[in-house]
Design a binder for these strands. Structure first.
Lengths: 299, 299
DNA sequence: CGGTATTGATATGCTGGGGGTATGGAGCTT
DNA sequence: AAGCTCCATACCCCCAGCATATCAATACCG
């Protein structure tokens, strides 16, 4: 069975006449008859009812005609679509966001991108840790990651977009909540809520480093995988958490955010797999560079 | 472009390896490479990214793969479906109802048929006059007609199902409404609402004949194309109408139906085009014969 | 009713292209 | 550097698809 069979069948069905159909197909009538017979034999159904004077469609033929037309149209469209994908005009792009960027950035970017590139289908995932993002880039689960530096992976290309200063999330009843700003040293002895250390969270490492510089070892009371959970834990008064400033977008009753003086900032970057730079991905990267250009803005 | 190209492409895309794909396709690797090149050239897009060591899909190729799979599945299904149409297992059947059967029969039969033959798609049309039904059978607009005899058309086969006695529809304020039954002669001088005579309504002819036997010429005050309109006109007190008993199903405030004694009955029949007896139509005819077997029942 | 034209099926030969084998060349592995 | 893997190229063969010629059946026409 080949597309030829379908094209020939459609022609004969539309003309209801082998001779005219053959003419339309720029071929002689006998081979056309042969091909139609072959088709009928292959699917095991009589599609045309022929007398020596008249050709008409059987019920099965009528239904098959519709299908055949659809299939031929689909074949054409598939080619055209592939061409559009090739130019990046259409495409599918999946973006994975680091946990702390899930609340301030994901909604804004999702809206912007869908608006600016309506022909591209987007898929957004939030609350990913950087190592998971790297793995996902490798597997092809995501095409682009909005992530934290550093990333040491040969095939993942990274571009730093902005610096995000760190803030501390405090229960509103906490004594430090009364201050305008908090020094990292003030947090000595406080119960810390952190990301899980075994997954090598960049933020987690940054917090450890900052604490060490301030001369103490943070006391960890809980390790959570998601930023929202972290903030909820703070709201519940279980402890404090150090997060990038953009997490302030996640306003919750019972939680206040205070600037951390003397703490280093963390980098927000975009990353992609060097071998998965499809045209659509390229266009999205362009837009992301523009959208994420403002330094250290909350959104 | 042939289906072969799609099959080959799917194989290569799935294996990401020309050699293995060729093996799977029971062919050698070089011609496979050729065919894929040919495909790419035809749609003008690079579908596969090859190095001498690795084959991978481009973005366009990935999309094309999905489409190709769908197309191949569609081709298979089209054949299977045609086979099912051939055995009457599935199909589409359009049934046209004569006006006076629209209200009592159409809803009942529609429900029954859909229930008994769920694999068949039905289309029902009501309020057709017999000549229009014959024309529709010829054009193929309908496959089966629930109609009135007689039909004099060579290619339309007719089977009488039941006799329907005639009743008269009267405004409820009409003096005759007080009687249990009405003789046709009682209607002498009454204003009649009829179907349009120029369309050769069978019922119209039957009424004229009955009137002639009763010794008068009916006075026609209105001609309507639809039975529902006819009954509405009677309800409005514009006149009386003679209709088959099954129209009683169309209950309307202000209208009463009374049996007509001494009036002949009309025949309800099913008709179909002798050259459009598809397997599905055949199966529907079977069911109709059973459903319409009860003589002169209102439904 | 016979002759003719029309139309689909059958018979037969030719040709192009799809598929075969042999080989080349690029890039991993060891 | 040698060898292996794997896709591309070169070249050839054979069959499938198409053409031409013809037949068979039916409608049409005088």
């Amino acid at each position: 069975m080949e597309l030829r069979h379908l094209r020939y069948f459609v022609a004969v069905a539309e003309e209801c006449h082998f001779g005219r159909a053959a003419e339309r197909l720029h071929m002689a009538q006998p081979p056309l008859s042969q091909q139609i017979r072959q088709l009928e034999k292959e699917i095991g159904v009589e599609l045309l009812h022929r007398t020596t004077r008249k050709v008409s469609l059987t019920a099965a033929g009528e239904r098959y005609l519709e299908r055949a037309r659809n299939i031929l149209r689909a074949v054409e469209q598939a080619g055209e679509e592939a061409a559009r994908v090739d130019t990046g005009e259409v495409g599918r792009v999946s973006i994975g966001f680091i946990g702390s960027a899930t609340y301030a950035l994901l909604p804004v970017l999702a809206r912007e991108l869908r608006e600016q590139l309506p022909e591209i289908e987007f898929e957004f995932t939030g609350e990913m840790l950087t190592p998971a993002q790297v793995a996902a880039l490798h597997e092809g689960t995501i095409d682009i990651a909005v992530m934290r530096t550093p990333v040491q992976d040969e095939s993942v290309e990274v571009e730093v977009m902005r610096q995000e200063s760190l803030v501390v999330a405090l229960p509103e009843t906490h004594p430090l909540a009364a201050k305008e700003a908090v020094r990292f040293a003030d947090l000595k002895g406080e119960p810390f809520i952190t990301y899980p250390s075994e997954h090598r969270s960049v933020l987690h490492d940054a917090v450890l480093a900052a604490a060490q510089r301030a001369g103490f070892q943070p006391r960890r009371v809980a390790q959570v995988a998601e930023t929202s959970t972290m903030v909820v834990f703070v709201a519940a008064g279980l402890g404090v958490a150090v997060v990038p400033r953009s997490v302030e977008a996640l306003q919750l009753a019972g939680v206040v955010f205070r600037p951390l003086v003397g703490a280093e900032s963390v980098e927000l970057a975009i990353g992609w797999h060097s071998e998965r730079r499809t045209p659509a991905v390229e266009r999205v990267l362009e837009r992301l560079r523009v959208s994420l250009a403002e330094p250290d803005a909350p959104a």
